[in-house]
């Protein structure tokens, strides 16, 4: 597989909560424009890995390099966060703001853009996810799928270099999954670098450039979707895939 210029290099990442080891030794590299899907059973450490990558959880060990510089010591935390966006399973929109304000606030506060530029920018991304008609609605007035699309627009408005998705469709009603996956598919086609924890196997197969299978805090296997879904090498991967694909 041709390797693009690496953006994120994760090496020997470890996370434990007390005595409980969630991530034992994780190393992988994300290149420019890669769409990496992380799959695996519940409790395998997928979400923790993503949360460690943008320091919502403090890693217990290991190193994350972003553009070759140590994310923990050589990047200002706010700057790093602004360049690594995140979309959450439970949307986490700011409930005291309208859809538009959700997308404007971070730009003004963190990137110090003036309000007019930030608003124009926010509108562009709301438009991109098809939520511009709802710019004046507050989160409580939106459906799950709509909230998640606004949350994606909020993350995009910061113009991140990498966007992390933590099970973005797991909290949605089945009929709303499609609209969110559609938006993510467009982003992937547009060349955005994405790291996606998902249970949507068909999405992983069709959209991702690379699939990582996690098991018990380790990367058990990784490869192209082609390799992973048609001829997985590991017994654990085969077992997991047969279980989730049978559903």
């Amino acid at each position: 597989m041709p390797m693009n210029e690496p953006i994120l290099e994760i090496s020997h990442l470890m996370k434990r909560f007390g005595d409980h080891v969630v991530l034992s030794d994780i190393s992988f590299t994300v290149g420019q424009g890669d769409v990496t899907c992380i799959i695996g059973a519940s409790g395998s450490g997928k979400s923790t890995l993503l949360r460690c990558v943008n320091f919502l959880e403090e890693p217990s060990g290991g190193q994350i390099l972003f553009h070759g510089k140590d994310a923990e010591t050589q990047w200002k935390r706010a700057e790093y966060h602004a360049k690594i966006g995140m979309v959450f399973q439970s949307f986490n929109l700011f409930n005291n703001m309208t859809a538009l304000e959700n997308c404007v606030y971070g730009q003004v506060r963190v990137l110090h853009r003036d309000r007019k530029t930030a608003t124009e920018n926010a509108m562009r991304y709301l438009n991109k996810v098809g939520m511009d008609p709802y710019r004046n609605a507050r989160p409580a007035q939106l459906s799950g799928g709509q909230k998640q699309r606004v949350a994606i627009a909020r993350a995009l408005a910061m113009e991140p270099e990498v966007l992390l998705f933590d099970e973005p469709t797991s909290a949605l009603d089945p009929e709303m999954v499609g609209e969110v996956l559609g938006v993510m598919r467009d982003l992937a086609n547009g060349g955005l670098t994405m790291l996606i924890v998902t249970h949507e196997m068909s999405f992983a197969r069709d959209v991702c450039s690379r699939v990582i299978f996690m098991d018990q805090g380790l990367i058990a296997e990784e490869g192209t979707p082609q390799e992973m879904f048609t001829s997985p090498k590991q017994a654990r991967t085969r077992e997991f895939l047969s279980r989730v694909l049978a559903r």
């Binding site: 602004a82 986490n92 929109l93 700011f94 703001m97 971070g106 909020r154």
Partner: peptide, 29 residues
């Protein structure tokens, strides 16, 4: 819910910014 604070941090807001802009307005209400 602490998810909103995490979301604020995830776009680079400081403790102070996320408190003043996101958490406290809702907490006070």
């Amino acid at each position: 819910d602490k998810g909103q604070k995490e979301a604020a941090h995830a776009i680079g807001m400081s403790h102070w910014q996320s408190m003043v802009g996101v958490v406290l307005p809702q907490a006070v209400r």
